[in-house]
Amino acid sequence: MSSSTDDRAAIWTLRGAVALTCVAVAARMLMYGGPVLSWLWLNVGWSEQAALRLEHGAAFGLMVCAPLLCWRKAWPAAALVSGWLLFATVAETATGTWHSELTPGALAARWLAPVALIALSMNKERPAEWLLRIGIAGTFLCHGLEAVFHNPQFIDYLIRGGELLAGTRVEETVATTVLTAIGVLDIAVALAILVPKRLRAVAFWMALWGFLTAAARVLYMGWGNWPEALMRVTNGAVPLTLLLLWSRPKPAEAEHETPE
């Protein structure tokens, strides 16, 4: 495969993922209201109407940004998307209740993906690669910690998964033990992706697991829950972008690479 083809595949993967994130985040805000509404209204003291107007405006803005992301020069659209996603992350941290200190890290792949997209659009591949590595490392590390702390939602995913996929009732104690193992593995791959080597197997696993856990939201509660799944598409797409970027050896780096 030629290097330009891989680059194109990588940038389009990331573009697609960020665009889908925009649509999902917008849909979620319009359907259920987002964390910014809760934060501005209940914590900051805005009127409900003003906070609603801001979220609706942002939802429409995100939906316009989605197609604009396909245009290489429209990087301000990606900057706006990242800005909003970061703002929403801060609001979620402020209003969240279960280990909310982990939220900025857990959502790092989401809000850093558009920044990496800007870097890739400007042919700054090295910074883009590190933004992607840091983003997905944050997401896996914090989700891993949540798993080790036994996030009850994750326990229910495992129990429901057992019923749907294997037709068996998974006991809570078993689900909890499995969750601890998953958490440890998540933390291990989060650290591994930060090693300054192109560990393709690690990126491959993260992409697979990222997509699978995003899809679990639909498996768990049906297709009506699509925004929840799509909002997490970067959890798989960011490591997939890394994998595509790493699919061609760079002359200068190829020498130092360990064979897999």
Partner: peptide
Amino acid sequence: TAIAVSAAVLIGALTAPPGLGA
């Protein structure tokens, strides 16, 4: 980009359903 996004944000804000305030 600026025009498109601003227009969309404005339309979104103006079409938001009425809240009831405090």
